[in-house]
Simulated scan of single mutants.
Amino acid sequence: MAARLFRMDEQTWERHASPWSVWTRVASLPLLLAAIWSHAWLGLWALAPVALVILWLWLNPRLFPAPARTDTWSARATFGERVWLNRKAVPIPDHHARAANILTAVSAAGFVVALVGALLNDWLPTVAGGLIAWFAKMWFCDRMVWLYDEMKNTHPPYARWLRAGQKEVR
């Protein structure tokens, strides 16, 4: 559902492989939780910062230029996510599907705890749930790198996404 909402076309995925896109997006969870928390002093006006963070999440993969090289961890994580989203058309190994589903569930559960904490302005569930969600998402991303590295060797179109950097001349 989120993939359809974000409407990621080929060019958007290419741009999202940028480390700037990946790492600034990873840093967005605390901003979202702070925006939700702000309802305590902003009331309904807190919807504005929440909307801004959601807009940022949509704009993020569109703002940064496509990277010259895509052999980085962050680019391969986005490629793995593309492979994961395409798993109905091109099946993936069961161990990757199982791990991704578990990590998604853990991340979602952590986010729900963090969301409830932010709505109740209780720092403990906000921080604990946020950390659980964030670490599970990072582990998911690492699994996506592994998935991509495995699938690029079995499905040639995936290998074409990879562009190695130039050798540095000294």
Rank of each mutant, 00 (worst) to 15 (best):
W56K: 03
G43P: 08
W41P: 02
R62W: 12
D71T: 01
R62K: 09
P65M: 10
W56N: 10
A48P: 01
A48M: 11
W45H: 09
T70A: 08
L47P: 01
D71I: 09
L52F: 09
R76N: 02
W41E: 14
R76H: 03
V53F: 11
A51M: 13
R62S: 09
A66Y: 11
W41D: 07
W41G: 06
L57D: 06
L55C: 03
W45N: 06
T72D: 13
N60M: 04
A75C: 10
T70C: 12
P61L: 04
T72S: 15
L52H: 00
L52G: 05
A51T: 05
P49W: 10
R76C: 05
P49N: 04
R62G: 08
P67N: 11
L47W: 10
A40V: 07
W56I: 00
T72L: 13
P61H: 02
S74R: 01
A48G: 02
A77Q: 08
W58G: 01
L57A: 04
W56E: 00
W58H: 12
L44R: 12
W56A: 13
L42V: 03
L42Q: 12
P49K: 03
A40H: 15
L55G: 09
A51S: 14
A66F: 09
A51H: 06
A77T: 05
A66N: 07
W73N: 00
A51F: 13
L59I: 02
P61G: 01
P67D: 09
A66P: 07
V53A: 04
A40I: 05
L44V: 12
L57M: 14
F64H: 11
P61Q: 01
W41F: 14
H39T: 05
G43V: 04
R76Y: 03
L63M: 14
W45K: 01
L55K: 04
W73Q: 00
L42C: 03
L63Q: 05
V50N: 06
H39I: 04
D71S: 09
F64E: 02
A40G: 10
T72Q: 13
V53Q: 10
D71P: 07
L59Q: 12
D71H: 07
L63F: 15
A66L: 04
P67E: 11
V50E: 06
L59H: 10
P65Q: 10
A77D: 06
F64G: 02
A51Y: 10
L47E: 01
I54A: 15
T70I: 11
W41Y: 15
S74Q: 07
R69G: 15
R69K: 14
W41R: 06
L59W: 15
L52T: 02
H39S: 11
A40C: 00
L52N: 00
A48Q: 02
V53D: 10
A77R: 06
V50I: 15
A51D: 07
V50R: 06
A75M: 05
G43R: 10
S74M: 12
P65S: 12
R76Q: 14
P65H: 10
V53N: 07
T70M: 10
L52P: 00
P49I: 00
W56H: 12
H39R: 13
L55V: 12
R69A: 14
L47I: 04
L55W: 13
P49G: 01
A66I: 04
S74P: 01
D71Q: 07
P65T: 03
W45I: 00
A75R: 07
L63P: 05
S74C: 09
A46S: 15
V53M: 12
G43H: 08
D71A: 08
V53P: 11
L59C: 11
G43F: 09
A46M: 06
P67F: 13
